[in-house]
C-alpha cells in the first residue's frame, strides 16, 4: 500500500481504555469544539494529513454523532473533503499520502493494524460530488455492491428496496434495464445514493452531493438526506451554508489560513453555530465576509 499510516494510539489496550470512558476533553482541546451527546459514530483526534510533503489537515479532532447529519463547511482548500475521505480510507488510493492521528469508527481504529480498507468502505458508504453511475443499467448499478460481495438474498428485492429508500423507485421502476447515464443529474445522484444504500452501510459520506445539480434536484436530495438520517449516520461536505443550515444537526467549520492548513475552527450544533458562532472567523464566513 502506498500510504504511510502513523497511528498515535494503535494498541488494543488503549482502544479499550478509550471505550471505558476517558474524558472527552482530551480529544477536543478547543472550547469551540462541542462534544455531541451519546456514543459517537466517529471519534477523530489529532488528525494530520499530508499529500506528499504538503499538509492538508492539522490537528483535527471531533466526535461525529450517530444517526445525525453532520455538515463540514468552509472555503475551498480548507480540507473538508480530505477529512471526509479519511473516514472511509478513500485517501489510501492516492499515492504518497501520510496520515497521522486517530480515527475511530464506533470502537475500532480505522487505521489500526489488520484493518481492511475494503471492509471499512463496505460499512461506510460514499456519494460523490459529481454523480458517477457506472455505464451500466440502473439495476446493475444498484446491484454492484451486492454482486461483488456475493450477496445471497433476493437481488430484485434489494434493488427495489434501495431505490425506494433513495426515492427513485417510482421514477424508474418501469425500466430498470435502461442505462444509469440516461437519467437526469438529480436522478443519477439518487441512483448513486441507492447504490450506496444497497450495501447496507451504517454511515453515508457525501462529498458536496448537490454541487452539480439544479435547485429542484438539490431540494430532493436534501429531503432525502433528512429522511435517511433516521437510520444512518450522515456526514456531508458542502460549501453551501444554507444547505448546511437546512439539512444538518451538527456543523463543523474548517479553515486554511496563512499559518495552518486544514484546521477545525468550530464544531457545534448547527442552530448554535449559525445563531451565535463562538469564533470570529466562523461569524465572518457564515455572514459571507469571505470564502
Amino acid at each position: 500500500m502506498s500510504i504511510r499510516v502513523r497511528s498515535t494510539n494503535p494498541t488494543d489496550d488503549e482502544a479499550r481504555e478509550a471505550l471505558q470512558g476517558r474524558p472527552a476533553e482530551e480529544h477536543v482541546p478547543s472550547h469551540n469544539i462541542t462534544k455531541p451527546e451519546g456514543e459517537p459514530a466517529f471519534s477523530i483526534s489529532d488528525l494530520n494529513f499530508w499529500y506528499g510533503t504538503k499538509q492538508a489537515l492539522t490537528n483535527v479532532g471531533l466526535d461525529i454523532p450517530r444517526k445525525k447529519v453532520t455538515a463540514l463547511i468552509g472555503p475551498s482548500g480548507c480540507g473538508k473533503s480530505t477529512l471526509l475521505r479519511c473516514l472511509n480510507r478513500m485517501n489510501d488510493l492516492i499515492p504518497g499520502v501520510t496520515i497521522e492521528g486517530n480515527v475511530r469508527y464506533r470502537s475500532a481504529d480505522i487505521y489500526g493494524p489488520g484493518v481492511d480498507p475494503v471492509e471499512v468502505r463496505r460499512r461506510i458508504g460514499m456519494v460523490f460530488q459529481k454523480p458517477n453511475p457506472f455505464p451500466k443499467s440502473i439495476y446493475e448499478n444498484v446491484a454492484f455492491g451486492a454482486r461483488v460481495n456475493g450477496f445471497r438474498g433476493n437481488l430484485d428485492d434489494l434493488v427495489e428496496g434501495s431505490l425506494q429508500r433513495a426515492a427513485l423507485w417510482d421514477e424508474v421502476k418501469g425500466d430498470l434495464k435502461q442505462s444509469g447515464l440516461a437519467l437526469s443529474g438529480g436522478q443519477q445522484q439518487r441512483l448513486c445514493i441507492a447504490r450506496a444504500l444497497a450495501n447496507n452501510p451504517d454511515v453515508i459520506l457525501m462529498d458536496e452531493p448537490c454541487s452539480a445539480l439544479d435547485p429542484i434536484a438539490t431540494l430532493k436530495i436534501e429531503d432525502l438526506i433528512r429522511e435517511l438520517s433516521t437510520d444512518y449516520t450522515i456526514v456531508v461536505v458542502t460549501h453551501n451554508m444554507q444547505q448546511a443550515a437546512r439539512v444538518s444537526d451538527y456543523t463543523a467549520f474548517m479553515l486554511t489560513d496563512e499559518e495552518i492548513t486544514g484546521q477545525l475552527i468550530e464544531y457545534a450544533p448547527t442552530e448554535m453555530m449559525f445563531t451565535q458562532p463562538g469564533d470570529q472567523r466562523t461569524e465572518d464566513y457564515i455572514s459571507g465576509r469571505f470564502g
Binding site: 471505550l19 456514543e39 469508527y105 464506533r106 470502537s107 475500532a108 480505522i110 489500526g112 489488520g114 484493518v115 481492511d116 475494503v118 471492509e119 471499512v120 463496505r122 460499512r123 460481495n149 456475493g150
Partner: peptide, 12 residues
C-alpha cells in the same frame, strides 16, 4: 459500544 471489527473476514 457493540464490538465491531474492521478486519477482513470470511468473504472479504
Amino acid at each position: 459500544p457493540d464490538a465491531i471489527t474492521l478486519r477482513a473476514e470470511g468473504r472479504v
